[in-house]
Design a protein around this nucleic acid. Structure first.
Lengths: 101, 101
DNA sequence: CCTATAGTTCAATTATTTTTGAACTTTTGG
DNA sequence: CCAAAAGTTCAAAAATAATTGAACTATAGG
């Protein structure tokens, strides 16, 4: 499998990050990930496989998440440090607003 | 003119706020407003009258801005206190990321 | 090897958003 | 009263984005 592409976070416009986070399903995904890394299946999201794959891709392309292949799974994590460096406080306030764990 | 409607900020979902802020033109508007109240014309946005009116409406419906009629103008301001109360830190981090004036 | 698992991709459809321009409403200055 | 200024509204068009289901790829377990 070709390696998964992750954008340089400095190349992501703020508007693109906000667009990625503006979807309820994706906010739910990010909320789950805030608790720790997981595979798509473990996210327990109510969406078809392909829709979920799509949403995850949008988040990846916006620099929100990182994925690494592990077996047949993709282990997904939030790019917390990088996001915090580029958009200080933003992720925290979003996570805090969704549901402070 | 019928009074301008502003939603109760508690009724605005986070996803709707983020969607409103996810457009470059609207981020520009909010950036301008961060410097103080102004009319649409004063915003100096590169968009047609009706497109600008549309963007401003989206921001208003998302609870981001407040408008009051003054003569033939609408004086627009950011609903800063309310936003800060409902989504602590969010607006600040967005404004900070756009261009810390 | 064979099959199940986990996810991706594709093309088609549907849905939502954005943009445009023209017509309209309000308000004010002359 | 009249005209200009500042926006709004509307309908149509254009552009984006989301959802589906089927076909596909890669990996691992038996």
């Amino acid at each position: 499998m070709a390696t998964i592409h992750h954008p340089d976070i400095d190349s992501v416009p703020l508007s693109a990050l906000l667009a990625a986070l503006s979807d309820p399903t994706r906010l739910e995904i990010v909320g789950k990930l805030a608790a720790g890394p997981c595979s798509c299946a473990e996210m327990d999201i109510d969406a078809s496989k392909s829709a979920l794959s799509h949403h995850v891709k949008v988040l990846r392309q916006a620099g929100v998440i990182h994925q690494r292949a592990e077996g047949t799974m993709r282990i997904t994590t939030i790019r917390r440090n990088e996001l915090d460096a580029r958009f200080p406080g933003l992720l925290d306030s979003v996570l805090n607003a969704t549901g402070p764990k």
